[in-house]
Design a protein around this nucleic acid. Sequence first.
DNA 1: TATGAATGAGCTTTCATTCAT
DNA 2: TATGAATGAAAGCTCATTCAT
Lengths: 208, 208, 208, 208
Amino acid sequence: MAKARGKKTTTSAPVKRDPDATKAALLKSALTLFEKKGYDATSVQQIVDDAGRTKGAFYHYYESKEDLLHELHDTFIDYQLELAHAVLARDEPADVLLAAMVSEALMEPLARYKSEISVFLHEQRFFSEKQFAEIRAKRDEFEGCVVEVIRRGIDSGIFKDVGSPRLIAFGVIGMCAWSHTWMSQSGQYTPRKIGEMFGEVLVSGLRA
Amino acid sequence: MAKARGKKTTTSAPVKRDPDATKAALLKSALTLFEKKGYDATSVQQIVDDAGRTKGAFYHYYESKEDLLHELHDTFIDYQLELAHAVLARDEPADVLLAAMVSEALMEPLARYKSEISVFLHEQRFFSEKQFAEIRAKRDEFEGCVVEVIRRGIDSGIFKDVGSPRLIAFGVIGMCAWSHTWMSQSGQYTPRKIGEMFGEVLVSGLRA
Amino acid sequence: MAKARGKKTTTSAPVKRDPDATKAALLKSALTLFEKKGYDATSVQQIVDDAGRTKGAFYHYYESKEDLLHELHDTFIDYQLELAHAVLARDEPADVLLAAMVSEALMEPLARYKSEISVFLHEQRFFSEKQFAEIRAKRDEFEGCVVEVIRRGIDSGIFKDVGSPRLIAFGVIGMCAWSHTWMSQSGQYTPRKIGEMFGEVLVSGLRA
Amino acid sequence: MAKARGKKTTTSAPVKRDPDATKAALLKSALTLFEKKGYDATSVQQIVDDAGRTKGAFYHYYESKEDLLHELHDTFIDYQLELAHAVLARDEPADVLLAAMVSEALMEPLARYKSEISVFLHEQRFFSEKQFAEIRAKRDEFEGCVVEVIRRGIDSGIFKDVGSPRLIAFGVIGMCAWSHTWMSQSGQYTPRKIGEMFGEVLVSGLRA
DNA sequence: TATGAATGAGCTTTCATTCAT
DNA sequence: TATGAATGAAAGCTCATTCAT
């Protein structure tokens, strides 16, 4: 598993580029490699080789490998959370909100930040320590938004009361989150289209 | 030559234990640790320490760390696949089959082999090389069973045609598979109960 | 993840030294140890200890232990091959060439690169795989030069035709190559002197 | 180098054979493997796998891996030494003796004990410790026999005095000993034939 | 006579990180 | 801002050897 570690390759002459480009290049390389091989199996050496930079540059911009992972998550978590809150703020019935939540706050970001989210979903299980408390909190907050939509639907009589709204929310999130494992084989279906399909099934499935 | 390895002089005698117990203890420790920290982040040393055995014993029973992972998967993959085929073989309408598939072939094994499946779902992304081809094939076969149920439902007019049966199947599997990330916080709900809940939502959501 | 390797806390600062000196010191220590104990029986730990360096430094300069062996061979193989070709290029009778080949291309390099050649001669039997194909090819090319001298001698009537020129060449090479096993006990005789002695015996032994 | 270590293979049911056969089978397997991969690079596990026996059997018959090497050498050293003494005992002129020594005491055993001698010649450099003192002594005694022939030739005026008889003896031995590296490619030439060829060259080369 | 589980030191190699320049 | 030599702990794995059975 993730055994094919690359050999150190002697990098060519130091490239002078603008700092932001270097930082971004490192992030991009790391993202690609994390997605392909996993965080643990990706070495800093591989990241810098892939980015055409050096270890020194890496540690100039990032405190640690974990720090980079942190930044990687920050790029989409806030975005996704904002979308969820925006959906929740709309003055519309729960069934419309749920469809929007699935399509706009869950599937659309998955298209936009496919790699980031894929990495996040694979590594999140370890997020217990302090450095990830904040991200964990935001993830929980996101979950809360979905739960809230379900609850509103039940309270307003639009959705039948199938049991715990929380578990239903987990089901909804899982249905969408899991798509990162097969999204690349989804053919002509766009994430948005898939979101509509899933939303349609879920909404009719929950309707009273 | 000129190498005096293993010239044990002051070490205690090797402890004779029940072979089966040793192998099982190693597997159990590995399972727990893989689930908690991930495959890559778990070292063989940690496994043997946890099992109260030695590295030598580990490599006496397993060819490699990966070999153990393999064995770990073998314990449930066949079981789950058999259940899926059993459901498919029943002479019942598609809606009943789908509910059974969700509840019996997806959620029930998740309760029984929670840790094994949790590890599998986290590490499966790397299963591209030959050593995991067989497991990958079985996973694909399982997916095919779920797709088949959806297809039958659409063909018989019980389910509405929401688009690709395959993507719907992925949604169904995702909803259930994802539960391994939150199952421990599911309170009084058993996997079977959750399965019934999910099945109810999905079946009504798909009904024509 | 969840792996805190290299979280150096109480270690002394890395010592900055002359890179070339470090690489050379490692090569020198390896050479000495390989000659004394053999390649297989020499550990990287022993090499770095002997050189007063660390394992990290070793793998900074060499991809592997085998890579070092490779470099070690490269230092003399080309030199020796060049000498053989130079002898062959001279416009002189075969008996003179053979004496020169023995003395200059065989024994002299043995004095200059005693350790390297000693290591090479001991380990060459394994040189079948691709990574040593090049070295093997050069060794074969060297053998070809000696064969060529013998053949010329026979063709020109200077040497008697004792049978296969190739086997005679092997005998000549063996007589010289074997000297690495006893060279250190050769007393006041220099390799050049020994080469002259061997050359004299061989040339008169082959003369028609 | 010698990297391709075999995997442990599960041996079939314990074979009950006569003790001598087991011991001999182990020796034979070890011999083959030592010759192919070297002593250090050959593991006891590989030896027992190759012989279709178990480790327990190995350590029942041999005290250690080194002990086996010892026995391996004992099978030919005495034989070869005896031959050398037998040649020396003949009442014939030195040139005849030298030819006989080369052909009968050097090359002929090489044909008979090719593998054993090949292993011996590769590993002998480490024979400094007490456990090999005896073998080392016999090797030195053998060398002495060859030196004696050369010395007699010079003393009797049959051979010219080219310098140190000892170094000449080393050259003679080297010419023959080296043949183990290429003997398998010697085509239709038998060791005896090669011995006659080498003897002819050496004797005429040394003749006064 | 023979087994094979168990040992534990040692192996080659990798790696995140530091720091003089 | 950036380099890359150096660190040293730890990784996965191998091995000669022991010994209860």
